Structure formats: C-alpha cells, structure tokens
Amino acid sequence: MKIVVIGGTGLIGSRLVTKLKHLGHEAVPAAPNTGVNTLTGEGVAEVLAGAQVVVDLSNSPSFEDDAVMAFFETSGRILLAAELAAGVGHHVALSVVGADRLANSGYMRAKIAQEALIKASPIPYTILRSTQFFPFIAGIIKSAGAGQQLHLSSALVQPIDADDVVAALAEITLGPPLNDTTEIAGPQALPINRFAEEYLSAKGDPRIIVADPDAPYFGAVLDDRSLRPGPNPRLGTVTVEDWLRAEMTAD
C-alpha cells in the first residue's frame, strides 16, 4: 500500500515512515525538503498519485496567531483537494488533546480549524489527538522566562513518548477510517510544575519552579481537564521516569 506522510521528515513523521516500510508498505515522506509544499501546492499532486492513505503530520513554522491559522487552513484545503482528485481513501491527521477546550490559544484554534476542514471533506478520515510529547517540557520551561524563579501552571498534564504516538498512528493508518476522533495519552498524569521540576533536577539545572494556577500556557490558563484526554483513551507505555532515564543516558 502506498502511504504518503506529510511532514514525513520530522520527529514523528520520520519514525512513522520507517515503521511502515518495515511493515512492507510504500511509505513516502513528503515535506518542503523533499519537494512537496502543501502551502503552495508544489509537488502535492505528483506525490499523491497512486496513494491509498495520506497521514498529515505537518506543522506551522510560526505559532503567531494569524500565521498558524493561515498555515493550517491553506495547507488543509490544498492537501484535501489534491487527495480528492487522487482518489485517496483515508486521511489521517495528528491533532492535540484539549484543542477544543483552549480557545484562548491561537495554535489550538488553528488545529480546530484544521479538524473542521477534514470533517467537512468527503474523504474518509481518522483524527488522532495526542497529549504533549515529553520533550515539549523544555519549551514550556522556556516560555516561563529567563529568571531563576519560573512560574508554571499546576494543571495536570499526561505527556507521552513519541514512539507510542508512532505506534498508534501506524495502527490507525493501516486500519479502516473511523470517521471520528480518537485520543492517546501517556500512562500517568502529573502537574506541569512537577514535571518541570523533575526535568530540571535530572538536568542539574538549579532554577526554581513555582506552582502558579494562573500562569499562562502559551496564552491560555489551564485547569486539570484542559490538557487531559476524555474517557477511554489509548495509553502509551513510557513513563516520565522512563523518559528522563533515557534522556540522561543519551546526554
């Protein structure tokens, strides 16, 4: 089966391409650096020729509100139109758990707009919403500023390992379209501030994390439901402790 992975050279996409190839499929990575640009349409029709499934893992190069909305709306329209013309039978997309609950975040609004385009298209689809990947904690910490005392939300988060997401995407890609949204999360929930403390401690970073329920998370104030999945999500297997241990070994 020919499967085109949009964003197939990125963190998740490259691993998904490798996994699908190992399973005997023709998995084609598509990204600007392979000559495929879903914002301009360059190379899109050509790469989709003969594809049965498209997995959209694309992401905006800018998280500024207007830019990210323009990216997902433009890219989504161009890609879905090309898929319809090519006779693609299953559109798989990766989205974010909680996107529909964080309207104050421009990025989350853009992901909901992307999801709406998918649902309005006649192409059968499956949307996988994932919680935050483990390495994202570094960006969360960076967003809190440059001082020695950083205020971070105390809301619960359920971070997940990239390989757990790849395994779920591979299963979805090779299965029938759900025409629905499903969720995946890590195996344990913990407050964002606690996750940040464990990460800094493992790195030997002396900065102090202050738990602050009102600290914004990329423009949105969170509660314990904001970034956690609904009932009966898929669950990954890698814990925070597992990931931190692997990170320290890699360093």
Rank of each mutant, 00 (worst) to 15 (best):
S58I: 01
A155S: 15
V88M: 06
S153W: 01
S60M: 09
V240H: 03
I3H: 00
T38Q: 02
A246V: 00
H91E: 05
D242A: 14
P135I: 02
V17H: 02
E26T: 14
S121R: 07
A196F: 13
N33L: 09
I127G: 04
A67Y: 11
F195Q: 04
V54H: 11
I112W: 03
I123H: 06
F136M: 09
S226E: 07
F136K: 05
V221T: 04
V97G: 06
G8A: 05
R228F: 00
P216M: 12
A116N: 10
W243F: 14
H151S: 13
G76Q: 02
P177K: 09
G7S: 01
P191S: 04
A49V: 01
E64Q: 15
A93G: 10
V165D: 14
F136G: 02
A27R: 05
A162F: 12
I12K: 00
L79I: 02
L79W: 08
L117Q: 08
V157K: 00
S143Y: 06
P29Y: 06
R245M: 13
Q114D: 07
V5N: 01
A144V: 03
L94K: 06
I6W: 01
L117G: 06
G175T: 01
N179C: 13
R207Q: 10
L190V: 00
E198L: 15
Q148T: 09
A155M: 10
V88D: 04
L102P: 06
G106A: 09
F71K: 01
G41D: 14
E171L: 12
A30I: 03
A250Q: 13
N59I: 00
V92F: 08
L174M: 09
M248G: 02
E247G: 00
M108R: 04
S14P: 07
G236S: 12
D223N: 15
N232M: 15
I118T: 04
E197C: 13
V221P: 09
V97E: 05
E73S: 14
K142H: 13
P124V: 00
P206E: 05
E198G: 02
G76L: 04
P191Q: 02
A138D: 15
G236H: 07
V88G: 04
N179E: 14
P135W: 00
V221S: 11
P32W: 13
D214A: 15
F195S: 01
F71C: 11
A196G: 11
F63H: 03
P231L: 11
L48M: 15
V28L: 13
K119D: 06
T18L: 14
A67I: 02
V240D: 10
D56V: 00
G50E: 14
V36T: 13
F71T: 01
D214T: 10
E115G: 03
V28D: 03
D56G: 10
A70K: 08
E115F: 03
F133P: 11
A170V: 00
E247T: 01
P233K: 07
H90I: 00
P176D: 08
P231C: 10
T239G: 08
A85R: 15
P191H: 06
H90K: 13
G50T: 07
A93C: 12
